[in-house]
Design a protein around this nucleic acid. Structure first.
Length: 504
RNA sequence: GGGUCGCUAGCUCAGUGGUAGAGCAUUCGGCUUUUAACCGACUGGUCCUGGGUUCGAAUCCCAGGCGACCCA
């Protein structure tokens, strides 16, 4: 290991001795690899074009003969072969550096960055190449690349050393390129619709807006405990109170929870708030945003996700939570008004863990999570949730005990969440106080009463539709990624070596 | 939190109680049409860590670490 490194350090030193800085300052390319491949796609085998092009990239593979060498280099767009002929290089560089070809042969390795200038030719064997007359080593790499054939497959190393993963796995680069396209596309669409993005605080003295356990931190100067945000909801609503009518924020959220294929403690959400809209309007917006993203990124609405064929063509199925649970279990919780009867019916239907639940709404939700959620492969809006599990949503205009809320499920996963937002400050205070009581009773996911948010509501918030979309899960869907870690560049990992036992 | 599986050379992997291996990469030699180049020679090890059993442990046992998947 260190011998490999020492050898390369020695090569870097030899380059310095020969007057070449192995860590160059800049390079001007005329084309990318993909541009050359496209421009000369029709060039015939064994022919050369007398143009002077310049290109740079990382050496991925070297095939060296006595007086001829072929390097495959990779830039962000793809790969192209370098055709390195001793005679040609000597003719062009020999006066200044008689050792130019020898240095190329002996002092470069797979992993180095190189810049070349030369003509374009397609070899007899059909490989488009830059036939170099000049080259410059731009960066000397000290560590070996993974096996050129098997690549890097160890998932732990792929996540810990994502830079190596990105070097050798082109599909990983493609995933993050798509991720960027998705977020850019969403912003583009919302901008065109007159929404503005406003950044709200990550550090908060009261973490609200979702049922989740926050990370706790401390601000020295003000000597106060602070929380990392678990949602952007309550501040974006303050902006609606302030008079903005279409706002959103796409950003990082932190929840102090476990790690799984669907969860990372920091993840990305977009929350969108639109004055004078309700949850029906937000359903339409959800469809538009997802369809638009799919069209921009994959160009089709018929997608494959881990072998499952998903059709994103709108309109999507809409079904109430009560009806969905009834379909799956045969139990109509809407017809039950006795808690014990509901528990008995749930147990009968094979739903476990409802014994100490305090309301029929929570049992309904539990039944949904256990029996329905993972069956919802095609995009489905589940609507009209129990008020007990929706402290920020407006009561349903016609169904007592329910709120105007929907969640979007695709491939069995919650992907979006939306309400007609609760605007009645008195009702909101009661619900938040119930939350605070639950927290006091030990519910770590319940929130405190955010008095300033209530004050804002008392100034008056117009009727508002709110929508949150899990960006990571959307990206998973549109990149056919089985794990959230595949769409987060640097997912959370424990340190490789456990810290020495700290003083307790 | 529970269960299952994994951790051996830079990478990908063999090796189930008896001298730690292969391919690729590296190093050296040869080679002007290769593309997993080829031919020849060589080099490279905290077998995740710590204990235990044993004449002897990569291998068996215990504890721990890190990771993957599943479950809660």
């Amino acid at each position: 290991m260190s011998e490999l490194r020492d050898t390369r350090l020695e090569k870097a030193e030899q380059l310095r001795q020969a007057g070449h800085n192995p860590y160059a300052y800049s390079w001007k390319s005329t084309h990318s690899a993909a541009e050359l491949q496209k421009k000369y796609a029709d060039l015939e085998n064994g022919t050369e074009v007398e143009v002077e092009v310049a290109i740079a990239g990382r050496i991925m593979n070297r095939r060296v003969f006595g007086k001829l060498a072929f390097f495959t280099i990779q830039d962000e767009t793809g790969t192209i072969q370098l055709f390195l002929d001793r005679k040609k290089i000597k003719a062009a560089m020999g006066e200044e550096n008689p050792e130019a070809f020898g240095q190329l042969k002996n002092l470069t390795d797979a992993g180095d960055f190189i810049g070349v200038r030369g003509s374009v030719r397609r070899t007899d064997k059909g490989e488009l190449s830059v036939s170099a007359d000049h080259y410059e080593i731009l960066t000397k790499s000290l560590l070996p690349l993974p096996d050129k054939w098997h690549g890097l497959t160890d998932v732990e190393k792929r996540y810990r050393q994502r830079y190596v993963d990105l070097i050798v796995n082109p599909d990983v680069r493609e995933t993050f390129r798509r991720r960027a396209k998705i977020t850019a596309g969403i912003r583009q669409y919302l901008d065109a619709e007159g929404f503005i993005e406003i950044e709200t605080p990550v550090l908060q003295t009261s973490a609200g807006g979702a049922a989740a356990k926050p990370f706790v931190t401390y601000h020295n100067a003000t000597e106060m405990e602070m929380y990392l945000r678990i949602a952007t909801e309550l501040h974006l609503k303050r902006l609606i109170v302030g008079g903005f009518e279409k706002v959103f924020e796409l950003g990082r959220i932190f929840r102090n929870e476990g790690v799984s294929t669907r969860h990372n403690p920091e993840f990305t959400s977009i929350e969108i708030y639109q004055a004078y809209a309700d949850y029906d309007d937000m359903m339409a917006l959800t469809e538009t945003l997802v369809v638009d993203a799919a069209e921009k990124v994959i160009g089709t609405l018929e997608i494959d996700y881990q072998g499952e064929q998903i059709n994103l063509q709108a309109p999507w199925k809409r079904i109430t939570m009560h009806d969905a649970v009834k379909e799956a279990t045969g139990v109509d919780f809407a017809a039950l008004d006795d808690l014990d009867a509901a528990k008995a019916a749930a147990k009968e239907a094979g739903i476990h863990g409802c014994g100490d639940m305090a309301s029929i709404g929570k049992i309904l939700n539990e039944a949904f999570e256990q029996k329905v959620e993972e069956t919802l492969m095609q995009p489905t809006f589940i609507t009209d949730y129990p008020v007990e599990i929706s402290p920020l949503a407006k009561p349903h205009r016609s169904k007592p005990g329910l709120v105007e809320r929907f969640e979007l499920f695709i491939v069995g996963r919650e992907t979006a969440n939306s309400f007609s937002e609760l605007t009645d400050p008195v009702d909101q205070r009661q619900r938040l106080e119930a939350q605070a009581a639950a927290k006091a009773a030990g519910d770590e996911e319940a929130n405190d009463v955010d008095e300033d948010f209530l004050t804002a509501l008392e100034y008056g918030m117009p009727p508002t539709g709110g929508l949150g979309i899990g960006i990571d899960r959307l990206v998973m869907l549109l990149t056919n990624s089985p794990s959230i870690r595949d769409v987060i560049a640097f997912p959370l990992m424990r340190p490789e070596k456990a810290a020495e036992a700290e003083a307790e």
